[in-house]
Simulated assay, not measured.
Amino acid sequence: MDAWIAEFRLSITRALAEQLATTLNPLSPAILGPAALSKVDARPGVYVLFVAWKRVYVGKAASNLRTRLEQHYRKLSGRTGITMSDVRFTCVYVDEDLDAAAPEKLLIKKYRLDDTIPWNTNGFGNKDPGRNRDRSVVKAQHFDALYTIDLGYQLSVPFTVWSVADLLDWLKRELPYLLRYENKNKSHLTELKHTRIELPDIELTAAELLIATIDALSPGWQATALPGYVILYKEETSYDSALLWWSRKDHGTALETRGPQRFDAGEVEMADQGDLLE
């Protein structure tokens, strides 16, 4: 091309990414907790999570930034290997009209040039993988392998007498990680509904509540702690990546078995990389 001729290409997405980064970068990260979250409006926006001042995740909230960040706070508070005072965030309110431009993906693309957002590709944003994937071997670099669930998480149980079904339903709502249990087999569901369980009037850990549940049910039930969630079914199964499981045979008490805790090398698969990449 001649020296006096040039070609101009307008990149709206590049300009948007630069403007978002320019707005976010000067902000001072606040500790991810109730005090700072109470000041976040229920508006659409994008946000950045930091651990020990290092940027680890970029996300978006299509309608409510506070709710989305509260979900992250809840999830992270139930993990090992993370000190919540080290987790911080910044956020920017974004006009709803920009949602179609996927502003968080523009930021992800920009920040990846510095390889500074590992949680965007390690499964941090995952939902329930489903029963068919419970037996999958978790990658060593997956979020769930790096920060396994905290079975010592304490809960204040509001009642001392429950049906097992009601207790599991309450636990499913209160635990900061997924609890999935039998919901199809009619005879098993009937047992959960009609089995009575009594608990002491004190704070109990997630592990203690799961053990009490296995003790209350008939032999053959198993509660399995996988790296990122807990499942409870009537089965005798060894899961390769399980942390541990509790089961009961005959009429004894719940027996704890250490899981294989097998984690595979290699990159986290695209299907496991979280909601931002779906």
Rank of each mutant, 00 (worst) to 15 (best):
A225I: 08
L175C: 05
V87L: 09
W246L: 10
L10A: 07
T190V: 11
K110N: 11
L167N: 07
E208D: 09
V94T: 01
H251F: 08
Q71V: 02
L49K: 08
G81S: 12
P227G: 00
E267R: 09
S77Q: 03
V87G: 00
A207N: 11
D166V: 10
S136G: 03
T22C: 07
E104A: 14
T213I: 11
G33E: 13
D99N: 10
S63W: 06
G259F: 02
E278Q: 07
M1S: 14
W246V: 04
G81A: 02
D150I: 13
H72I: 13
V137H: 10
A100T: 13
V157D: 09
F50Y: 15
E208A: 14
L113Y: 11
S247E: 07
E18N: 02
Y233H: 07
A216M: 01
I214L: 11
V138M: 01
N122I: 14
A271V: 14
E198N: 08
E70C: 04
L32Q: 01
V94I: 10
N132V: 05
I5A: 03
A100K: 13
R258L: 06
A242M: 04
T237N: 06
H142L: 06
P200S: 02
E104P: 07
A271K: 13
S241V: 11
R43I: 02
Y47C: 09
R14E: 11
L20A: 06
W53R: 12
G81V: 14
K184F: 09
G78C: 10
E235R: 15
V48R: 14
D97T: 12
F143G: 04
G266K: 01
P219H: 13
F50H: 12
Y111S: 08
I82V: 15
R14S: 05
I149T: 09
A206D: 02
A206T: 13
V58I: 15
H188V: 04
A62N: 06
K139N: 10
L32N: 00
W245S: 12
R180W: 06
R112P: 07
L20D: 04
F124V: 04
F50T: 01
T90E: 03
T13R: 05
G220D: 12
L178P: 02
V56E: 10
L49P: 00
A42T: 06
V40H: 02
K75V: 10
P227W: 01
L24R: 00
A42G: 08
A101T: 09
L210I: 11
L199C: 09
N120I: 10
Y57W: 06
T224N: 00
L168K: 03
V137D: 04
P129H: 01
L189W: 05
P219I: 09
Y57Q: 02
S187G: 11
L20I: 08
N185S: 15
R66N: 05
F50N: 04
R258Y: 05
Q273F: 02
D2T: 08
L204C: 10
Y233A: 00
Y229W: 13
E18F: 12
P129K: 00
A216N: 12
E269H: 14
V94W: 03
R74D: 08
W4T: 11
T80A: 04
R112W: 14
A21N: 09
Y147I: 05
T90W: 04
A17D: 03
